[in-house]
Write a protein that binds this DNA or RNA. Structure first.
Lengths: 206, 206, 206, 206
DNA sequence: CCCTAACCGAGACGGTACGTCTCGTCTTGAC
DNA sequence: GTCAAGACGAGACGTACCGTCTCGGTTAGGG
């Protein structure tokens, strides 16, 4: 029926553009290649569009058609990374904090995450969008999860009533961050999260 | 005096080479230019010998004659940076910890230090020498100073007897590091060190 | 009527293919655009299918559906050019030669012809089909016309009996060609054909 | 002696520029590669700087440093070609004309010359400098040589007193040009020059 | 009177070459 | 032997077309 077609057009709000549609496969290949190269330890400036195109098996045009510069591509590529938060049992604040911090520990052991972290921390000054987006997508959710657990603990009496929530977040996350950056070389010990939480709790608890 | 000459030869281990001596002025200009460029937010890969030479008003040869590659130059340049530890009163552990952490806070407010920190943290994977040297010169002295104060506190009873010293370092340094990286934008608040120490002490203290 | 259909099939030698017939308008537009671009001084290699399609208001597919490569298109396009020979009075050999050569002179003044000539002469090595077709359609008829007049002149006694016809053609055409290529800049003088013929006749005549 | 140096500088009129001098070897390799590629039948538009650089074993920069565009390079490259005129016996006008025309015939047999000729004739419209230079260096000397011989012939009575010198040049050169372009395929016959001269003389002579 | 098959335009695809830029190395005359 | 200047080969940049491919949408005859 004609009506249907008309409705569809109305519903989408815009006619499909003429010509061959852009290939989703190519788009995915480009993003993957970008992340692969970044994971190999390349910085953003070492990353060349030519290398991405070559690794993705794609023409340079296909990249430039979608992103007008390298930063936009990197921002989009990093945005596709999923960083799911662990499920929280909700039974005790201590257990939940350990879950959250242990998730951080495991993420720090993954090469791709390490590189993303490095890039976000070091190249942030030059690529402000990148930092903004990274904070919004990766940092803030974790910070908020920690904050929620801490606030829950304060309410339930498991944590001190006068605790500065932000300071609690800083101490817990900071200790993990410090260990992953400046601690002894090699993988972080499996019980690190537990030890950090206990050390912090000893003070945070009333 | 004959002694002087002999000693000089002995000390240098070789006779002064023939030809025009290398210009110390050029060397200094190169190091300065390198640090300036790094301070402007450049990563190591963005840093080009050409730019350094141009900024230093020096030929490229003059650089390559002294350092065989960029990493060596950067390592040397960063090594010239002084990072003196603050004097410690030694009266109370709390005051000493605040002194140390507040020194970190002030350093984090300096653009040049921030860049050095960024580079050390993010480009370490690609330039292992750099990390090694940075840890040895900048991280380890601070870590040791903190460790000393904490151990003194344990001995004096100001800190818990069963405190894991490394964990104490991680919590204190980590909280500062976290604030400087992921805390609210802008300069760190002047009382941050005090608040961090008090929050940590509340638990570290018996 | 069945007869008509049968005849049509017989005449065309094949059944009309199914589907939408090719647009004659598009075909004409493509040929025109091609000739226009060539007339603007483009060489064959400068000539791009994209430019032709754009100028003709046609998709590239529509061109490639008809000609498998640029050379085929150019050959067809140039083949559509008409190059009528002037009518010959037939009264005197001298007058007929002047007519033929003056037609050459006028053609040399036309931009489109100049370009076709240039292309035929310069790109012939690379596009052998093109040369072959051009010689057959443009050069040979003129050569033959000249030859006919000369042979008529020999038969009538207006030209030397022992004249090498090919050499006569070469001298007459060559002199015109030379003037149009290497003579003084600007249009060829109106009396050029007459002067060439007279100069040649002075020797060709017995 | 200091004086010598000073004089040298004075003599050259300019101090030698600082820095590494441009490599004559590279310059020669570029010219050679250009001529080679043109000789392979390439037109100017098919000729790519990248191909020249690759064939010459040279960076593209080295080409662009010397010539700002392709035309300039081609003009210079073609200018290096020598096209010596044959020595003229000077005994008889007929022999000298045959010498000159036979030199043309031999040049037409050389692949490199054919290409240069094609380029000069066909791409002249687009590259005016090229035509100008080619006429000055290649066409004009030959035209002048022919003119000299013809004028000598007129003076000595070997040629008609009322002969239009320009027309004589056009007839003689044009006949050769015609044969090389539109005559039967393959090499020009060895006695062509003689036959052309005799055919022309039969009329040019009184 | 729709079905169907080839046509049409538009435009994305993987490539190649462009002319520019900057890299790290090499080569020169002056000091 | 060191210095600056600057040419060198290499190769990435972003752009322009190449010839091919895939879309949604015409045509027009034959069922």
């Amino acid at each position: 029926m004609y009506g249907e077609t008309a409705m569809t057009i109305q519903e989408t709000g815009a006619a499909r553009p003429a010509g061959r549609p852009r290939s989703e496969k190519a788009e995915k290949a480009i993003i993957d290649a970008t992340l692969d190269l970044l994971s190999e330890g390349m910085g953003i400036s070492d990353l060349s569009i030519e290398a991405i195109a070559s690794k993705a098996g794609v023409g340079k045009t296909t990249i430039y058609r979608r992103w007008s510069n390298k930063e936009d591509l990197v921002v989009d590529a990093l945005s596709t990374l999923k960083a799911p938060l662990p499920p929280l049992a909700g039974t005790s604040v201590r257990d939940d904090l350990i879950s959250l911090l242990d998730a951080m520990r495991q993420e720090a052991g993954n090469q791709r995450n390490r590189c993303v972290m490095n890039i976000a921390m070091s190249e942030a000054d030059r690529y402000p969008q990148l930092l903004e987006r990274f904070v919004k997508r990766a940092v803030e959710p974790r910070r908020q999860a920690l904050r929620d657990v801490i606030e829950r603990g304060i309410a339930s009496g498991e944590l001190r009533a006068d605790l500065d929530v932000g300071m609690g977040v800083a101490i817990l996350s900071g200790a993990m961050l410090w260990h992953s950056k400046w601690g002894p070389a090699g993988d972080l010990p499996a019980d690190l999260a537990e030890r950090v939480v206990d050390a912090a709790l000893a003070g945070i608890a009333p």
